[in-house]
């Protein structure tokens, strides 16, 4: 449904914007009376990795939760402004958040697999969204997804083992598999590597590079090096404002703002 309407909208937009998958317009967020985001305008490009960087408490997590309306679950959180997915505002009343979240997957900071089997973890999304017709299709989808995240070889012989029995890095890849199994357009990742060791982190970073071909990825990271390695675009958040955004190369090598320079240079963090 979202896709159809957006297709019509897309035509009316200028052609040059067609590679913009998501776009926020004057997005502000409030917790009670404290404003956490101030009129954020940011473009998220199709099949590109957008990294969000900035010091703790700068609003990155609030922002990413705005993108799939997970803020609905945060008590006392109020959002104003627009978030467009393919040109279509997801904050309109008639938007079905259920379908929206099928289109926009999310991976969390700490691996949080369901305490069900590995198979069930991946199969759960396709099942509730009725993406498959029968068991064979589901099996195929689970296998394909697990292969895509590079987990298939490790778990093929114990698909019925609980997801929580995997190592931290495997759990996080399982969570990514769970998120992409519903065939989303955008995958949001909220510091997916912060709870992992360097080897597992490297594995996830490789995976992100592979997934880029298929999905649009937004990733929050605390590691400057990681942002530089994996992302095409970078947005620097500070105190609820986007200070600067653009090509990663440009932000890291030739930032316009002094604050960006200071942060990247490690002057504050």
């Amino acid at each position: 449904m979202v896709k159809n309407m957006s297709a019509q909208k897309k035509i009316s937009k200028t052609e040059s914007q067609s590679d913009i998958r998501m776009k926020t317009q004057d997005l502000s967020a409030f917790y009670n009376n404290d404003q956490a985001l101030f009129d954020v305008n940011l473009d998220i490009h199709t099949n590109k990795v957008t990294a969000l960087i900035g010091p703790s408490g700068c609003g990155k997590s609030t922002f990413i939760r705005c993108l799939n309306r997970m803020n609905d679950y945060v008590e006392n959180c109020r959002v104003t402004g627009k978030v467009r997915l393919d040109g279509f505002n997801i904050y309109k009343d008639k938007v079905d958040v259920i379908l929206l979240r099928q289109k926009i997957g999310m991976v969390f900071q700490k691996p949080n697999p369901f305490p069900k089997s590995i198979y069930e973890n991946v199969a759960y999304g396709p099942k509730i969204h009725h993406l498959v017709e029968n068991k064979d299709e589901l099996d195929a989808l689970v296998e394909k997804t697990l292969k895509r995240v590079g987990l298939w070889d490790e778990v093929a012989d114990r698909l019925s083992a609980p997801g929580t029995s995997l190592s931290g890095g495997q759990q996080q890849r399982l969570c990514i598999a769970r998120a992409i199994a519903t065939k989303p357009e955008v995958v949001l990742m909220d510091e997916p590597c912060s709870a992992l060791d360097p080897i597992a982190t490297a594995r996830i970073e490789e995976l992100i590079a592979e997934l880029r071909e298929k999905f649009t990825i937004v990733i929050i990271t605390h590691s400057m090096q990681q942002a530089e390695r994996v992302s095409d675009h970078t947005a620097f958040f500070h105190l609820g404002h986007v200070v600067e955004s653009g090509d990663t190369e440009k932000i890291f090598n030739n930032p316009e703002h002094q604050r960006t320079k200071d942060y990247i240079g490690g002057k504050f963090g």
Binding site: M70, G105, F108, G125, C175, R178, A179
Partner: peptide
């Protein structure tokens, strides 16, 4: 049951009752 589990299910597009009856209640 930690909230992250509920969020994970909701982020996959499970409805509130699906979150409860497929996950929270089961665990």
């Amino acid at each position: 049951v930690p909230p992250s589990i509920r969020y994970a299910a909701a982020a996959l597009g499970a409805t509130p009752t699906q979150v409860v009856f497929h996950h929270t209640l089961i665990y």
